[in-house]
Nucleic acid binder design. Structure first.
Lengths: 236, 236
DNA sequence: GCAAAAGTGTTATGAGTACACCCATGA
DNA sequence: TCATGGGTGTACTCATAACACTTTTGC
């Protein structure tokens, strides 16, 4: 990681949304520092790299996926926005800090940073969370039970969720959170998780089918003592 | 203008929307260089300044207004995004360039820049376009007859318009483009200018009144041989 | 009275909501 | 046959669209 190759004072933070067990989840990194610091997956932008490319690279590092749906949603640039929590830790422990193999460049790292917020939607089943050298753990946390974040990352997640809700219907992006095929109930439960409110089953089905983007496939026999639901696939 | 005091490689560009004569307009600067270069009003971010504050400062410089409605809408960060047009000009004219009283710091200024796009809505009657030392002229251009812009500024305006359209209804922000009081027809013509399509007069009126944010004032007698329209004021 | 534009009313349409009902499935 | 959950139909409400009609204003 050559700090010289990055744009200074500018970073990217990613809110990676996944969905499982009727819960909307966010991928969270616990930093590999001797203090409990939770962070969104983030990184810097190379001088010769589009910002969207940088976001994709960061996402690929943590999820091992490419072709991820992602969207830039807001820039966070408060004047005092610095990595103070880490700085506090360093002063507390009074020892040099390694970010991976590279000793932390204090001058570079502790300047005020402006960060570009991206959110990504992934099929949680396809993701094997990868920890980079900076991470102690990388884990999924339910949206309503997040760890105490570093800096303004709690705010970043909140704003990402607002934007996700704003776009889920219009842009037909919810399917990125589901496997290739899914039942109508699963789709509905996803919507309920995102909006944190129930939807009427029949009306939900009518609305989704009227969008004209769902292909009905074979029935899914689960062994349960009830009518087998159809599977659907998202098309175009 | 102390370049050292700004965040490097990060800028702000503002799409300042105004409205007059049934036309949506954008404030455009012709740079004070011996080449025809048109630019959006923009600037840099001080190290000790919120990005929103920086945008307000830039807006105040060009419009002499404070309390402007503005919204961050997108970041433009293509890898090759540089002030090449100016660089071309310099190579062509082979003379040192002054930005105001300060000689241009080539190393600083010709790096790749990431820019944060803001759009602002102003009452065009209250604005007296101010040219900074960087501007030759600052003028209003109709949205559908813009000059050939510098860099990616054409794209920035297009994206700003998309976002304005997306928000005009939801956020009730159109009134920022009108004077304190206005007739229903004027409001409708504004909407028609923004969306570039006609609205049915009666239905438009019904929709606007149902929002519950318009206070009906006295009638406006124009001297025309027809029924005098009511004036309205936007409330809360 | 007349043209022009403002204000209002009436009906049709379509999306969304709430209710009910029938069907398939496996025990 | 039964409970369970899936699929569908129908009536109601509400916002919007499309039509028409009346009113005000100054010449």
């Amino acid at each position: 990681m050559d700090i010289k190759g990055f744009i200074p004072q500018l970073s990217i933070d990613c809110v990676i949304f996944g969905y499982k067990n009727k819960e909307l989840k966010v991928l969270v990194s616990k930093l590999s520092l001797p203090k409990e610091l939770f962070s969104l997956p983030g990184g810097f932008i190379s001088q010769d790299e589009d910002i969207d490319q940088a976001a994709l690279r960061i996402l690929k590092e943590r999820t091992s996926l490419k072709d991820i749906y992602l969207e830039q949603f807001k820039v966070f640039g408060a004047a005092g926005r610095k990595n103070n929590a880490i700085l506090d830790f360093i002063e507390e422990y009074k020892e040099p800090v390694l970010l991976g193999e590279m000793e932390l460049d204090y001058d570079w790292f502790f300047k005020r940073f402006v960060t570009i917020g991206y959110y990504a939607l992934v099929d949680i089943n396809k993701v094997k969370p990868q920890k980079t050298i900076l991470d102690d753990h990388v884990d999924w946390y339910p949206i309503d039970d997040l760890p105490p974040f570093f800096m303004d990352h709690t705010q970043i997640v909140e704003d990402a969720l607002v934007e996700l809700r704003r776009n889920l219907d219009d842009k037909l992006i919810g399917f990125n959170l589901l496997p290739e095929t899914f039942t109508m109930r699963e789709l509905q439960e996803l919507y309920e998780a995102v909006y944190d409110k129930p939807f009427a089953r029949n009306n939900f089905q009518k609305r989704m089918l009227s969008l004209g983007v769902l292909e009905r496939l074979e029935k899914k026999f689960t062994g349960a003592a009830n009518k087998a639901p159809y599977l659907y696939r998202f098309i175009s």
